[in-house]
Design a protein around this nucleic acid. Structure first.
Length: 542
RNA sequence: GCGGGUGUAGCUUAGUGGUAAAGCACCAGCCUUCCAAGCUGGCUAUGUGGGUUCGAUUCCCAUCACCCGCUCCA
């Protein structure tokens, strides 16, 4: 699907509800902002996404061959850790600091700023004194402040020297009373609200009584649990670096503005891999995983111009990261030419393991150093446990570097749904062309793999069909439907994205052949039951 | 969090200060041998809470949700 039709997203949302892919959470109570439920078809779609990822990553991983693009064989394992973790985890990971921004709003311009990013200086002119603020690079700060002050006081350019400056440029954090503050984009003073805390991590408490002492957080990502268990996995499973630990699970972020159906939500599911490798080969592994993850989406049908890989440029990268790429999809709800992130593949160096070992590292330092508080002590203490790795063959001890492909299950499912949504034309029983809605899922993604349909409800056809249905159901999701006109049943299956229909007719009863109808082409081929079954099996396994 | 818009059946829409209309879908039955509209019958709705009023789905207020723009996007 393209984003040429602005209404296509509405149609997808409507279809999702009508056919049971996705419902608004708590709908009968009026809905819950940023929460969505998966219905009977949606849950199968989502399970397919997760199972295809898990089998590709873990269960079907070939750990004895050198895979295309890899430098050596490697092992892959899985993990399932808790959503609630020790509060120190989020302090050392950096989420605690980053997720507790103090924000201020401007009542005049409706803009929002991070409290500490607003900087300014006291200025005096025409017998009044205000605190002028800007958001700017340090080099341009004074120039912008002068321009803003000049405009506020109504001075001409050559009258600039009438402005008297009091004290140095300081953060707005130093100012208690905003009644004489000129906001960064405001024309009048006193338009800024008091700083308000935005809790981007959900808090809860352990034990019956709620207090500051027992506050814990719902995890905002699954990745940290993998780092915490790195040593456990190494000690218990005989894996050797390079190897990966994969995990699928729910995460929670208190998004300020949930938006765009299931794209930005407060409760979501992640598929994350932490791949541990030697620092010397980390760049090659980064490229390997970046390319392999892109290929995964392409193999499942997200090929073409709607999918792209975008390498972050240096200014976007964290100081400790030597590479990050986003795999992005052009969702229909986005403006033309814009893409939304499906997955981020990041080279994270040794930031995470060292942070959990030594204490939270300061991301702005190079080489990385433990972040210090005002008292000169570590801001957040690490576990003190040795998380370095000793190679049992070379005896070399080192901190592994980490490549992190982190994907959103809900976003992937939504992308597959959007990509699949197609409107085309099909003939009715009189040969007149009629509009048709079809979800062209890859057979591996499709919630239902095949429908078994008796052509008419008599002459033993339903009985024959039921036997086939029961057989197939042991292998993969199948649907049985004997009601109504055959064309209507085909269209229903098209709308659910079912790739194949097996139809039992009069001929079946004499020679045990059926017709296999393919969803996209609507072509039918007569073959034996076992040939039809095998054809479906192969399409699912491709 | 701000501004604008929307909210009627499962879906798409109509309409009204006085019994809420239709198409599709769905269910039951009949008919049907390959691509949705054959026949009969049936189910289902004014997001939630207040207010004005004899009476509110309609007018007003609040709230919730969704969409668009800003903001945010670790």
């Amino acid at each position: 699907m393209g984003n040429d039709d602005a209404g296509v997203m509405q149609k997808i949302v409507s279809l999702s509800k009508r056919r049971g892919f996705i419902f608004q959470s708590s709908e009968i109570y009026g809905g819950m902002n940023g929460c969505w439920d998966y219905g009977p078809l949606g849950v199968e779609l989502k399970r397919n996404v997760k199972e295809l990822w898990w089998s590709d990553m873990v269960t079907k991983h070939d750990d004895v061959s050198v895979l295309d693009g890899a430098i050596e064989p490697f092992e892959m394992t899985g993990l399932d850790c808790t959503i609630l973790m020790h509060p120190q985890v989020w302090k050392c990971s950096g989420h605690h600091d980053l997720f507790h921004d103090m924000m201020i709003d401007c009542r005049e311009t409706k803009r929002r700023y991070r409290h500490e990013q607003v900087r300014g200086r006291w200025a005096r002119a025409k017998e009044s004194r205000i605190f002028v603020t800007v958001i700017s690079d340090p080099e341009q700060e004074q120039e912008l402040l002068t321009a803003r002050a000049q405009k506020f006081f109504g001075l001409r350019a050559k009258e600039r020297d009438q402005i008297q400056w009091d004290g140095p440029i300081v953060s707005l954090v130093e100012i208690d009373d905003f009644s004489e503050v000129l906001g960064p984009d405001a024309k009048e003073i006193a338009t800024l609200t008091e700083p308000r805390e935005f809790n981007l991590m959900f808090k809860t408490s352990v034990g019956a009584l709620r207090s500051d002492d027992n506050t814990v957080y719902l995890r905002p990502e699954t990745a940290q649990g993998i780092f915490l268990n790195f040593k456990n996995v190494v000690d218990s499973s005989r894996v050797r670096i390079p190897f990966g630990i994969a995990q699928i699970g729910k995460s929670f972020r208190n998004e300020i503005t949930p938006r765009n159906f299931t794209f930005r939500v407060r409760e979501f599911e992640q598929m994350e891999l932490e791949f541990f490798c030697h620092p010397d080969s980390s760049q090659e592994w980064y490229r390997y995983w970046r390319d392999r993850r892109l290929q995964w989406y392409q193999d499942l049908g997200l090929s073409g111009e709607h999918l792209r890989l975008r390498e972050h440029d240096a200014s976007e990268l964290s100081h400790y990261s030597t590479g990050t790429a986003d795999i992005e999809y052009a969702f229909p709800f986005l403006p033309e030419g814009e893409f939304g992130e499906l997955e981020g593949v990041a080279h994270r160096g040794d930031f995470d393991l060292r942070s959990h070992m030594e204490g939270k590292l300061d991301p702005s330092t190079y080489p990385l150093e433990v972040q210090k508080g005002d008292d000169g002590k570590p801001l957040w203490k690490g576990s003190g446990k040795d998380l370095s790795y000793r190679d049992p063959v070379t005896n070399e001890r080192f901190m592994p570097h980490v490549i992190e492909p982190s994907a959103g299950v809900d976003r992937a499912a939504l992308a597959f749904l959007c990509e699949a949504y197609t409107e085309d034309m099909a003939p009715d029983e009189k040969g007149q062309m009629q509009g048709r809605v079809v979800l062209r899922f890859h057979p591996r993604i499709a919630p239902i793999k095949a429908a078994v349909l008796p052509l008419v409800k008599k002459d033993g056809m339903p009985e024959f069909a039921r036997d086939i249905y029961k057989d197939l159901k042991r292998e993969f999701p199948v649907f049985y439907d004997l009601k109504g006109a055959i064309g209507r049943r085909y269209r229903r299956m098209d709308e659910a994205g079912t790739p194949f229909c097996i139809t039992i007719d009069g001929e079946t009863l004499s020679d045990e052949t059926v017709t296999l109808r393919e969803r996209d082409s609507m072509k039918q081929i007569r073959m034996s039951v076992s040939e039809a079954t095998q054809a479906i099996r192969e399409a699912i396994q491709t």
